[in-house]
Design a protein around this nucleic acid. Sequence first.
RNA 1: UCCUCAGUAGCUCAACGGUAGAGCAUUCGGCUGUUAACCGAAGGGUUGUAGGUUCGAAUCCUACCUGAGGAGCCA
Length: 436
Amino acid sequence: MGTKIIRISEAHEHVGKTVTIQGWLYNLRKSGKIVFPIIRDGSGMMQCVAVKNNLPETVFEALKGLTQESSLTVTGTIRAEARAIGGFELDVAEAQIIQHVSEEHPYPITPKEHGVDFLMDHRHLWLRSRRQHAAIRVRHEVIKGIRDYFDSHGFTLVDTPIFTPAACEGTTTLFEVDYFGEEKVYLTQSGQLYNEANAMAFGKVYCFGPTFRAEKSKTRRHLTEFWMVEPEMAYADLEEIKRVAEDLVVHLVGRILENRREELKELERDTSKLESVKAPFPRMSYDDAVKLLESKGSEIQWGGDFGNTDETLLTQDFDRPVMVDRYPAAIKAFYFQPDEQRPELALGVDVIAPEGYGEIIGGGQRIHDLALLEKRLAEHNLPREAFEWYLDLRRFGTVPHGGFGMGVERFVAWMCGLEHVRETIPYPRMLYRTRP
RNA sequence: UCCUCAGUAGCUCAACGGUAGAGCAUUCGGCUGUUAACCGAAGGGUUGUAGGUUCGAAUCCUACCUGAGGAGCCA
């Protein structure tokens, strides 16, 4: 060949040049003696033009008979062309078919509409589609943004284990794993307890990885395997935790708007809904949130947790996320630091995204007093032996500390304006779906 | 786990008690600027499974299976 191989995303640098692209046939339009193969290569789409009279008969016939998603390389000259997708077009001089998808078993995902069940069964192929491609790239940007944010704010990445011996917040929602028949271990539902140990070692840490919840939830916001980033900070109080959570969200939204405009356009996201996400976020106490909900006709009573409709009601008058803090301790995990003035309240905070995307961040200040933590473990009927190492953190230089967890998929769903989190992760694991 | 809805061609749907259809995909033919191209033709069905009601069931009833939406719980 000898011509330069480029990716389609670089086409603008090669106008007037003869180059080769390596990809797959996205779609093909024919008009007698001219065909328009649209090729995708993972970086973008390129409309090619093949004219019968300018090409060897075999090349033209091979292109003309090409089936969707057949793999091929095409060599030709790049030209600016307003009529083509992406603004550039390639005049085909040569083409090599790598694999011709058979007519007997054509590519199942056609350029028309398909149902959720069918698409989910073909997730491994669905990822080639434009919207899915865009969503996964936004996910990549969110993950990179999270890493960059913490890395540049003095946090150290300290990984926490995925096999864990005990529950973080009770065992009912844990996946149990047989560990050589010797003992039972569980798939982690949070790295938080380890994070607290790590924060006492490094000051500011975060862990980032998959977490698992065996909740039989069947909604648009739930996966059984999802990714969560959890920062934890020594010497941090609730106000500092809220400040970091807000700063992170603002940073990420700004970054998506800056770097992923094309993807948001592909997803038909109303970006004005994201432009307004700036600090400060409205803050309210649980008490005030309950009052607000009552005034809006919710059935909620003080002491109960918010349902999905409550979360939507809470945020509907705001153009940015809402922070709710000081929840009743009774509905929160055992490790929450109580409010000094009102010990029945936990120093926890949830960040609720607008447009019905729900809770994207949950966190708070942890108990740092040994005696109080021992008391809470007993009240929650948790096996003391399993938490001895955790109690050590209160025996050896305990300090006020806290952090939060942010669910990546809910965040990405919000950024993309997607109906369901299943499209924000390449291979979603849900209540009744573990394949492909 | 509970509630609601839906399973008809490879896909998306129509027919709603009386001969199972369309678009896309596939095959064949036409077209030198198409934008989910268009035009013509062809092939493609045990209507999710098992029972029941009826002269007659895709359609009505029962159970089961599969999927979707929601509740609770959560990020």
